[in-house]
């Protein structure tokens, strides 16, 4: 199958400091992939580069073979932290904003997700719990008809019920051909739904492996990941 995302020899510097180097990564259509790494490893930066937000990198980033930022943005749905909205903003207003901003925003799909997540659109952001906010972010992100979804740490700091709900929604609403890249620094809770894991370490892609292959070697995904990060500490 052809590659959805291709990254070749990517290096990214910020204020003369190397953040990411020699990144090579290919992702196929129709996969759920975890982007793992410690806090500060560069996961968010990599996502921002893929999404076309951080532009001053060296190397090549392409979606379906196309490199232009505008074309990439059109087919990538990147989870927004909603930090651009005032805390007093009502959910309904954010929905309207998304509808206005994105041609591919599917209001019906949002309605389904909203019902599934039990999101009340009359609430203000300030009235929402961390879990509720993440659910809203996921619902907004998935309501776009994209090819690649980038979810930046959707599970950090939320309770088990909210996490379950989000995981179910990913399995339920992912289109067959769409690929989802989920960043996390903790893999155990999402391991069962992953096709592949990508580990960021030492400013680069340390490894990219199929989860079932890891299990074929009698290793759990968590052990595999911990072994990678354990190595450097001795």
């Amino acid at each position: 199958m052809s590659n959805l995302l291709e990254i070749e020899n990517l290096t990214y510097r910020k204020n003369l400091k190397v953040i990411l180097k020699d990144i090579n990564l290919n992702l196929k259509h129709g996969k759920i992939v975890a982007l793992l790494g410690e806090n500060g490893a560069g996961k968010t930066t990599l996502m921002r580069i893929i999404a076309g937000i951080n532009k001053n990198f060296r190397g090549m980033v392409a979606i379906d073979g196309v490199q232009s930022v505008a074309d990439r943005k059109r087919v990538i749905s990147f989870s927004d932290s909603l930090s651009g909205f005032k805390e007093s903003t009502k959910v309904a207003k954010i929905i309207n904003f998304y509808e206005y901003l994105y041609d591919d925003f599917d209001k019906n799909k949002f309605k389904q997700l909203q019902k599934f997540m039990r999101l009340n659109e009359n609430l203000r952001l300030s009235e929402m719990s961390k879990g509720m906010r993440e659910k809203l972010i996921i619902a907004l992100t998935f309501s776009r008809q994209a090819e690649l979804y980038l979810l930046d740490e959707p599970f950090s700091g939320i309770d088990a019920m909210a996490r379950k709900k989000i995981i179910s929604s990913i399995i339920l609403w992912k289109a067959d051909e769409a690929t989802i890249l989920i960043s996390d620094h903790f893999v155990n809770e999402i391991a069962s739904m992953l096709d592949e894991v990508v580990v960021v370490k030492d400013k680069t892609i340390y490894c990219h492996k199929s989860t079932e292959e890891i299990r074929e070697n009698n290793q759990s995904i968590e052990e595999f990941y911990e072994n990678i990060y354990g190595e450097g500490d001795e």
Binding site: K31, I32, I167, I171, L194
Partner: peptide, 12 residues
């Protein structure tokens, strides 16, 4: 898809 959701695993 029903099985995937029920078992919390990937469709693939």
């Amino acid at each position: 898809r029903e099985l995937a959701v029920q078992l919390t695993v990937n469709v693939n």
